[in-house]
Design a binder for these strands. Structure first.
Lengths: 238, 238
DNA sequence: ATTACTTAGTGCATTCATTCACGAAGTCCA
DNA sequence: TGGACTTCGTGAATGAATGCACTAAGTAAT
């Protein structure tokens, strides 16, 4: 199984350049690997190597990259920094996207303080909360604002991506607020399916859900083992 | 696009009952919805309704559920609590799975304190860290232990699922430790591809990666808009 | 009982994704 | 210059997932 592609999303039929959904999901993965390679002063990489590093098949890697254009050199491979640039361009990561985090609880704080955002193309423009006791505290280098300021923040800072980090029962209204404020994409950490207009992009991150998937496969393993234990004696008899 | 299925995983070819990967990923989603329905005293549900609530197609819902057996009643629908029970059984969620969290930093603490685990089939058996200054503090109701105790904890508490919440550069060694200790599945929050034996199940949770996917679709939207702006005047001329 | 209606279960067509396998295009070295 | 070798790019084959549309099986009401 492929552990990357969150298959409960709500993406548009990929408007512009027609890159298949499945490939889009892998591009950020390649990007991350290329970044690591740059750090290691590696300048060239073949599809075979990139496949090994990403846990994919070499042909798949080549096809994925071919959607961006013909940026490889036959007999040689890909120039790491050039490919990096092209993937960044394709993903719209030449600029830093401002994001707004809704919810300044445990999760919101952890997300805001997470360093992995800034070096990967995002900047926390604001953290908002309804709880006025949280307003004013600092999370991720920015002061927590009241949720009423959301429309103004989104407008003035041109935020197009919102992150929902509120409890499940408030997630839908948080989403509604974000959309009314003008956000076009939502990363949802709350364990609910949001009811949204189809033009809004959504991705879901739900730890319990991921664990439950793992649980299924662990259960399969146990079941298989039990079957083996039961059938083994028989085979001895036979 | 479907926002649920993490497509960078490393799952086995679904050993036991042959349920397609794509369906397995949706079962936890149905489970969550059924739980909500129970709370609302709803006792029956049709595939059509369940489809609406989960953002899926009704035929897909029926097909997914049919992998578990024939638990619906034609002309009526599904009995909520019975279906709930069957999905739980299939996912191995009749018991609470003990999990161990590696890393007691920001993320590890947030995960340990996250209430959404216990009511969805998991219990934090232990939190471990290499940093001895963190050992002894309490996270998620359990004391943080030193990572050296991992093998013993995994054995004595029958832990089969490990959660990696350490910085990227330590994720691989954390994974190696978990596997050597006897864990069979890993939920990886670190932004690296782990190099693991194929029989180990892995799921990845990477916020930056999800944001980058959203970034792509936002970029598409912008591009489409620009094209429209450019081509509109022409159509006026024509 | 019969008829009208609802809804699960499923075979089949279609669409989407992956993988293979080969030709094109380059490098390297004698 | 030419021949051996590497690796990309991609058409075509295979495989997986989706969604339609029909059948089977139930309810409800007259």
């Amino acid at each position: 199984m492929n552990a990357l592609s969150n298959s409960l999303c709500n993406m548009p039929p990929a408007s512009g350049r027609q890159i298949p959904e499945a490939a889009v999901v892998r591009l950020p993965l390649y990007l991350r690997i290329l970044n690591d390679l740059i750090a290691d002063n590696c300048t060239q990489i073949s599809s075979e190597q990139l496949a090994a590093l990403s846990g994919q098949n070499a042909a798949k890697v080549r096809k994925d990259l071919s959607y961006l254009g013909s940026y490889g050199t036959r007999g040689v491979g890909y120039d790491v920094s050039y490919l990096l640039y092209q993937i960044k361009r394709e993903l719209g990561l030449n600029k830093a996207w401002p994001v707004v985090i809704v919810g300044a609880g445990n999760l919101g704080q952890a997300l805001g303080n997470y360093g992995g955002l800034s070096n990967r193309g995002f900047v926390v423009a604001a953290v908002v909360d309804t709880d006025s006791s949280k307003v004013g505290s600092v999370v991720g280098g920015v002061k927590v604002a009241h949720v009423d300021e959301l429309p103004q923040i989104v407008q003035s800072k041109s935020v197009s991506i919102g992150i929902i980090a509120v409890p499940a029962q408030h997630a839908q209204s948080a989403a509604d607020l974000l959309i009314r404020a003008g956000v076009g994409s939502i990363l949802n950490f709350a364990p609910v399916i949001l009811n949204l207009p189809p033009e809004i992009n959504v991705r879901i991150v739900d730890m319990a859900l991921e664990l439950q998937i793992l649980s299924f496969y662990e259960q399969c393993r146990i079941d298989a083992l039990e079957v083996a234990v039961v059938s083994a004696p028989e085979s001895v008899i036979a």
